[in-house]
């Protein structure tokens, strides 16, 4: 202990340099964490968060009693998480391998640069673009009419939105996501490929026996990092792109967009606070489990 104090004193300059970040996180992350106790309180604006009366588990009872809403947003959140993780990661890897194997390097670089661009467009702007395609006189309906088909009123038909949001998300994120995998591929020793070629391996065999296995550690990290966010969603995608339209909730409402909507429209926060706590706790438990499992199997790939 004395050694520790001595060491900290010796490094007092370093300690002082840490203070700004320590304070920002204290006030903007840690104290709000304590604010999550709202889940057990009935919010009274005049008394503030800390003074509001405790109501025990009432909020959670409401949450469970709401049945349909609760199930719907949980199921949707998990559904989109699974789709985005599986499809997104596969496409990231596919694009990365495709560009890596591409002989025309300059063209490949240009393609990659363009693919990344969509990630820089905020969902507040993306919603206008989606509307230009799916609005009543949007591109897609124009094409449908051109082909002699009936135009579809996308914004009142919930059944299409799982696909629509998936396409938008892939458009937005795949180019960006592939960069990480590209960097791993660039690090593979080219001599391995040459050796394989000399031994008579064809392109497909090289990909399955050299390229894909070398991507496993990175894929594990990506999946691990995403597990903690299993209950969280890209709020903008679900709130902005769907224009927060109630007709579409059955396929588009996720926990995050539900909470944002509650914040914007009501002042009955207890219920949403319960949903938020549920979201955070599930996320934390899952990432701890996932990390534990990975550490058992392949310690090097664990997060912590």
């Amino acid at each position: 202990m004395k050694g520790f104090l001595h060491n900290t004193w010796k490094h007092r300059a370093h300690f002082i340099m840490c203070i700004p970040v320590l304070l920002v996180l204290l006030f903007f992350s840690y104290i709000p964490m304590a604010g999550m106790s709202m889940a057990f309180k009935r919010f009274d604006f005049s008394k503030g968060i800390w003074g509001s009366p405790f109501v025990g588990l009432d909020n959670f009872q409401f949450l469970l009693a709401s049945g349909k809403t609760f199930t719907r947003m949980t199921v949707n959140t998990l559904k989109y998480y699974a789709i985005f993780l599986i499809l997104g990661t596969s496409l990231n890897i596919a694009v990365a391998i495709a560009i890596d194997q591409f002989v025309f390097k300059r063209l490949g670089k240009t393609f990659q640069s363009i693919m990344i661009i969509p990630v820089f467009i905020s969902y507040a702007a993306v919603q206008f673009i989606v509307y230009a395609f799916l609005g009543n006189n949007g591109m897609v309906n124009n094409v449908l009419q051109f082909m002699g088909l009936e135009p579809i009123r996308w914004y009142i038909n919930a059944k299409y939105w799982t696909t629509i949001l998936t396409v938008v998300k892939m458009w937005n994120g795949v180019g960006y996501g592939s960069v990480l995998f590209m960097s791993v591929l660039a690090g593979i020793d080219q001599e391995m490929y040459e050796a394989a070629r000399i031994d008579g391996a064809n392109k497909r065999q090289q990909i399955f026996h050299i390229t894909l296995p070398s991507l496993i550690p990175m894929t594990t990290i990506v999946i691990l990092l995403s597990v903690g966010g299993i209950m969280r969603s890209d709020t903008g995608l679900f709130y902005q792109v769907t224009r927060n339209s109630g007709i579409l909730y059955s396929t588009t409402q996720v926990i995050d967009s539900y909470i944002l909507n509650a914040l914007m429209t009501t002042s009955a926060y207890g219920f949403s606070a319960a949903a938020a706590l549920y979201q955070s706790v599930v996320g934390l438990v899952l990432i701890l489990i996932a990390n534990y499992v990975v550490r058992k199997i392949e310690p090097d790939n664990a997060l912590f």
Binding site: L22, L25, M33, M38, G228, T235, I259, Y269, I287
Partner: peptide, 25 residues
């Protein structure tokens, strides 16, 4: 210090608690 920055990533307070603390407190 490492733990201190890791915890907010693993257990974020979420937009609701943030909102209430920032605006109300």
């Amino acid at each position: 210090l490492s733990m201190y920055i890791l915890i907010p990533m693993l257990f974020p307070a979420g937009q609701l608690a943030n909102y209430l603390v920032y605006t109300n407190s």
